[in-house]
Design a protein around this nucleic acid. Structure first.
Lengths: 228, 228
DNA sequence: ATGCCGTTCGTACTTAGTACGAGTTGCTAT
DNA sequence: ATAGCAACTCGTACTAAGTACGAACGGCAT
């Protein structure tokens, strides 16, 4: 009789709830429909259950978001230990940008969660080790970390926004902006847009490597100076 | 009789609603209690009116936020035209950091608003002019703007977060983190915290000028190379 | 005075998070 | 096998928040 019980069907399409499954589906939802579409109700729907069932695996929405952020960190490649510190940091920063690009909703959350997860801690630890390996004294280490992360987060934030603007409201928005755009009032912006930013081969993302190298160059010089 | 009408008192303490007043009080509220405390109801309360009265001055909450973001931009000093491009940019970036520090709630909003206000446009225009004046060709200009803003926004984001963590939940939070913190598991973080970041003279904010100069140095070199 | 228009606001609908407690399931020890 | 228990699920309902609708109101030009 157990195979004919009321939730036999449910059993098949619901591999049983678990913290992992809840988080995984939450990430999917956020990635696909945006963070504002991630409601407890919608999440429950996608899991084939009812809202209150989730509360046994995740204490509340805040904790859910904490968990998601930690997953994001888990996806960011740690600086490889078999590369020089510069290359290693480049790898980890590029990975961070890529991951944040895949999960644009996470950027504003990254720094606003008050409960660092294990993956976040492990990540920080590995980056600090790399900076230490580079021979940076503590004060320089602090600068380096602050500066690199500021750049990475800020860049990801701007890219996340660009992605939104290329959404379905593209036409409407472009028209709106163009309309509000008096070429006489904003000559530089007009020139910049016409002659560069709207060209098909322009890619905002190119500035990432440019800026990253600017910072790494500067830090390398500082390390030399400190070492001398 | 007009001085004895029902809303005589209200008249005195309510200088009549207006878009400006609504926005101003909204900024106050967000600054003081955080963006999540800025609800239409709370805002109406502080203005001495009822929720629906606001809708005649601001089309909805999104538009309210758009307006607030534009005010934030209006507070950021434009790069002074009577300084060299480097100094001018330094002034504007420092001002941006300071303003975003005063309005921490605005950082995640800055790049997520889809309706650029006049102040934002004017600000962009003036920065681009400065970059142009520096002799940057368009591609370099794009890099420079992207890189500087990424850094400024990212830094402000991290600072905003630090500010929150120094809030009323300080003790609780510090204890929590310390508890989760196994010195053996995270040796570098422990050393970094003990020997540097928790020292009374450590100031995260110091890294701002450091990073800003790193970027400006790099850009100056690029300008020279381009000019040669 | 009269009637119009911009404002104000009472009411109520909708969406979202989640507290409470009842029901259900499946594991474990007998 | 089965009783008992703990873990899980979910129906109901409360609260907070954004805002649609339309009535009421106040000042002003006629």
């Amino acid at each position: 009789m157990s195979d004919a019980r009321q939730d036999g069907a449910q059993d098949a399409r619901r591999p049983r709830l678990s913290r992992e499954r809840v988080l995984a589906v939450a990430m999917e939802l956020a990635d696909r429909d945006g963070i504002e579409a991630l409601t407890i109700r919608a999440l429950a729907e996608h899991l084939g259950t009812k809202p209150m069932s989730l509360y046994h695996h995740v204490a509340g929405k805040e904790v859910l978001l904490d968990g998601m952020v930690d997953i994001v960190f888990s996806e960011i490649e740690k600086p490889p230990t078999d590369l020089g510190w510069r290359e290693a940091l480049r790898v980890r920063c590029r990975s961070a940008r890529e991951v944040l690009g895949r999960h644009p909703w996470s950027v504003p959350l990254l720094e606003s969660r008050h409960h660092p997860g294990p993956e976040l801690l492990a990540h920080h630890e590995s980056v600090l080790s790399t900076l230490d390996r580079a021979g940076m004294p503590l004060p320089l280490m602090a600068h380096a970390y602050a500066v690199l992360d500021s750049f990475v987060y800020g860049f990801a934030m701007q890219e996340a926004n660009l992605a939104v603007q290329r959404g379905d409201e593209d036409a409407e928005l472009a028209g709106e902006i163009a309309a509000a755009f008096d070429p006489d009032a904003y000559p530089m912006m007009t020139r910049f847009a016409m002659e560069h930013a709207m060209r098909p081969d322009f890619d905002f993302g190119d500035s990432f490597d440019y800026g990253l190298d600017l910072l790494l160059d500067g830090l390398a010089r500082a390390v030399e100076r400190a070492g001398a």
